[in-house]
Computed example of a mutant assay.
Amino acid sequence: MDLFADDTSLTPIPIEDGELWFQQRLALDAAPGEIMQRLLDDTDWCHEQVQVWGKLHMQPRLTAWHGEASYRYSGKTFHPQPFTPLQLQIKQAVEQATGRRFNSVLLNYYRDQRDSMGFHADDERELGPDPAIASVSFGAPRTFILKHRRLPKTLKLALGDGCLLLMAGALQTHWVHGINKETAARGPRINLTFRQILSGF
């Protein structure tokens, strides 16, 4: 029996111009804290330099790219490392929960409250139109913020230990999302965003 699975299914969050789904606890065969420690230990973390508005900056977090395809964003092409056995287990659980298929994952390691993610949309050409992005979080909770591109609408979600968030439909066309730096102390957090990279782009 899986002692750590939550019986809550993926639930839609009402939102204009897109689809958003949330599950409090993704069903996995280990506790979130154990999974996070294994991800910390097993991942070859990189501190990347990326281009933003024509200028080079060090990303305010550590990253790793795994899967079956290369991916280009922020002016840089990321070549994948193979999926690890743990990543494959998480991917299988995500695919079972969402009914979607994914061939790549971006891992982000937020070391403390000073690490962040700038506002952006996952709308690169190789993701195709209306991509599905599945996000799984481990560790200290952080506030995930979505802002509509045209309308004065903002949505804030607390992403806690072991939760699953699915963005789909036209959401990447109409919304941007990010995670701000915070003033209060926060422990480390790892986020995995699973994507389906299409060939021919």
Rank of each mutant, 00 (worst) to 15 (best):
M1Y: 09
D2N: 15
F4H: 15
T8I: 09
S9W: 09
S9R: 13
L10E: 00
T11H: 08
T11M: 10
T11F: 02
P12S: 09
I15R: 01
D17V: 02
D17H: 10
G18D: 00
W21N: 05
Q23F: 03
Q24H: 12
Q24K: 12
L26Y: 05
A27C: 07
A31N: 10
P32Q: 04
P32N: 07
P32Y: 04
G33E: 12
G33A: 09
Q37D: 10
L39M: 01
L40S: 06
D41H: 13
W45V: 10
H47C: 12
Q49K: 15
Q49W: 10
Q51P: 10
V52W: 09
V52D: 12
L56Q: 14
L56H: 14
H57V: 14
R61Q: 08
L62F: 13
T63I: 15
W65F: 07
Y71P: 00
R72W: 08
Y73K: 04
S74P: 12
T77Y: 11
F78E: 11
F78D: 11
P80V: 03
Q81L: 15
Q81I: 01
F83Y: 11
Q87L: 15
L88E: 15
Q89N: 13
I90H: 06
K91N: 12
Q92C: 08
A93D: 06
V94H: 05
Q96P: 01
Q96S: 12
A97F: 03
A97D: 02
R101M: 09
F102A: 04
S104A: 15
S104I: 00
L106I: 01
Y109V: 03
Y110S: 07
D112H: 09
R114Y: 13
R114V: 07
D115C: 11
M117V: 09
F119W: 06
H120Y: 00
A121Y: 01
D122Q: 01
E124Y: 02
R125Y: 07
G128K: 10
P129W: 08
D130H: 13
D130G: 01
A132H: 06
I133G: 00
I133T: 01
A134H: 09
S135F: 06
V136P: 09
S137I: 00
S137L: 05
F138T: 08
A140S: 15
R142E: 07
F144L: 11
I145P: 05
H148D: 10
R150W: 11
L151K: 15
K153L: 15
L157W: 01
A158V: 13
A158Q: 14
L159K: 02
G160C: 13
G162D: 00
L164K: 03
L164F: 02
L165C: 05
A168K: 07
A170E: 08
A170D: 04
A170R: 07
A170N: 02
H177A: 07
G178E: 05
G178N: 05
G178D: 04
K181G: 08
E182M: 10
E182D: 05
A184C: 10
G187Q: 10
I190P: 03
N191F: 04
R195Q: 01
Q196P: 02
Q196T: 00
L198F: 13
